[in-house]
Design a protein around this nucleic acid. Sequence first.
DNA 1: TTGACAGGCAACCATTTGGTTGCTTAATCT
DNA 2: AGATTAAGCAACCAAATGGTTGCCTGTCAA
Lengths: 103, 103
Amino acid sequence: MDLVFKALADGGRRQLLDALRERNGQTLTELCDQLTEMTRQGVTKHLRILEDAGLVVTVRRGRSKYHYLNPVPINEIAERWIGNYERDKLRALSALKAALEEK
Amino acid sequence: MDLVFKALADGGRRQLLDALRERNGQTLTELCDQLTEMTRQGVTKHLRILEDAGLVVTVRRGRSKYHYLNPVPINEIAERWIGNYERDKLRALSALKAALEEK
DNA sequence: TTGACAGGCAACCATTTGGTTGCTTAATCT
DNA sequence: AGATTAAGCAACCAAATGGTTGCCTGTCAA
């Protein structure tokens, strides 16, 4: 869980996820073409982190490695975590409002 | 947006948010009592980051500073970001399955 | 008005992070 | 076989992060 949050914390990695959402199953070099301001090794490192977090799953075939989005971990975050805040949203907002108004 | 993701990346900070979700409007020292493995200054720093990200709003009154949860940024993440993945979830999953099965 | 309590500031430290360059391995094409 | 293409490995670097200690400021109550 922590790995997922940490993986999502970097803009470059979110870009990679977005690229995969655009077109799933891309290779390293294809992804590199889209993150032009980084070397291939930089991208490799980020992909590694995404993979460790379970957000990306890879399949090697021949000399290529294809990257696929795994939507499950993000979903778990949405359910377990965001859901809680969603539930308390109105309550939190009104408490905030009251605190700000109170002189 | 990036600030919010980064703020959420740390377990301690998520703990602080949870503590505030438990009881909104706590002071620094009250929050410190719940994060026992950190000094007050450590907690202060984390709260600062949460505040910069807009996740926490503070009100000072007298010598106390009260911390309130602001659910809005998390909600924006949920809508703009999680929503996209949710939408493509099934598609991504089936692509993943196909890639894994293909020999 | 003196003390105690809530919090802020600043300097400092170790570790992690994000990124690089250079070289190697492995598969594919001619 | 030789050249090319896809990816991996390792060492190294600067900057950011997470945390600490020590001291200062402001507020409240006796």
